[in-house]
Amino acid sequence: MLALAVPEALFALPLAAYDLACCPRRLLLAMPAAALVASWRAPGLPVAAKVLMTGFVAAACLLAWRTGATRAQRAANLRERDDLAARSQALEMQNRDLRDKRELEVRLAVLEERSRIAREIHDNVGHLLTRAHLQAQAYQVVFAQDERVRSAFEAVGESLSEALDTVRTSVHDLHDDHIDLAAQIERIAAESGLSVRCRLEATVAPPQVAACLRAVTREALSNVARHADVRDVALTLAEHPGFWQLTIENDGVSDARRTAGSPAEARGGMGLVSLEERVQALGGTFRAGPIGTGGLAGGWRVFASIPKRQEA
C-alpha cells in the first residue's frame, strides 16, 4: 500500500509478496500486483529498476510456492514416519504375543507330557514292581526254613525295594509339585470363545489345587457361554498368604436364576454342585450366584477359595 503512494517503497514489495504468497488467502496477492502495475506507470523510476523489482516479486512468489510445497511434503513425510513407527510397534507387539503364545504352548505341552509319563510309570511299572516285591516277601515266608533260598529272595526283595524307591523319585521329579496355574487358566479362557479379561496374580499351585481351579474355570466359562447373554467377563486369580482365590464374573443373566425344581437345579445345576464338592474336599469355599453390589452389578459370580495346607 505504501508502494502505491511512494514509488521508492517498491523495493520492499518482494518481501510482502513472499509473505502474502505463503498466506492461505492467495487473493491478497492482488495488492502487490496492483502496486507493481502502478510502479510501471510512475515516471520517477528507471525502467531497469521496474524490471528488476518485477523479477524479484516473481521470484518471491515462486520461492513461497516451493516453500509451501516443501512444508507440505515434510508434513507428509512426518505422518508417514509416524504411521510406519506405529505399524512397526504393532507388528512388534504381535510378534511378542506370538512368541509368548508359542512358549506357553510348548511349556504346557512339556508339562502335560511329563505328567503323562509320570502316570504311565506309576500305573504300570510301579504296580509291577510292587507286585514282584510282595511276591518276594511271600516267598521269604514260604522258604523260611531254607536259609539259602530265603536269603536269595531277601536280596531280590531289597533290589525290588530299591527299584521302587527309584521309580517313586523319578515320578516325583517328572510330576512337579508346582504347576504353572496362570498359563493353564489363560489357555482355558482363550479356548472358551468368550472375551475374558484375565487378571492372573497366581502362577504356581500344587497339582490338586490346580486341577480344582481349572475345573472351576472350565465349568464356569462353559455355563457363561451356554446359558447367559454376556458382554463382559472378568476372571481374577489371586494368591494370598493363606489361600488361593478365583473369581469369575459376567454381566449376563444366567438361566440358573430361572431354574426350579430339584435343590440341585435351584442352586445352579449339577455342574456347580460338583464343583462345590471338589472345592470343599480341599477345605475351600465355593459360591455361585447373582451379583448384588460391586463388580459387574446385575450379573453372575462364581467364587472359589482354597486354603494352603501347611506341610511338615
Rank of each mutant, 00 (worst) to 15 (best):
A138E: 15
Q140M: 15
F143S: 09
F143E: 08
F143Y: 15
A144K: 14
Q145K: 15
R148A: 13
R148W: 05
A152P: 04
F153P: 02
F153Q: 05
V156E: 09
E158T: 13
D165M: 11
D165V: 12
T166F: 09
T166N: 11
T166Q: 12
V167K: 08
T169F: 09
S170R: 13
S170E: 11
S170V: 15
H172V: 12
D173T: 15
D173W: 14
H175I: 04
D176P: 10
D177T: 15
D177G: 15
H178N: 10
H178V: 08
I179S: 04
D180A: 11
A182T: 06
A183K: 08
I188E: 01
I188M: 04
I188T: 08
A190Y: 00
E191H: 10
S192N: 07
G193H: 03
L194Q: 00
L194R: 00
L194F: 01
R197P: 00
R199E: 13
R199A: 11
E201V: 07
E201S: 11
E201D: 12
A202K: 06
T203F: 06
T203L: 08
A205H: 07
P206A: 11
P206D: 10
P206C: 07
P206V: 08
P207M: 03
Q208I: 07
V209P: 01
A211R: 07
A215Y: 04
V216Y: 01
R218F: 05
E219V: 13
S222K: 05
A225I: 03
A225M: 09
R226L: 04
H227C: 02
A228D: 02
V230A: 01
V233K: 00
V233I: 03
L235I: 04
T236I: 09
A238L: 14
E239G: 05
P241W: 01
G242W: 07
F243N: 11
F243D: 10
W244S: 03
Q245N: 10
L246K: 01
T247R: 14
T247M: 11
T247F: 03
N250L: 03
D251G: 00
D251H: 00
V253R: 00
S254Q: 09
D255F: 01
D255L: 05
A256H: 04
R257S: 10
R258D: 09
T259G: 11
T259K: 11
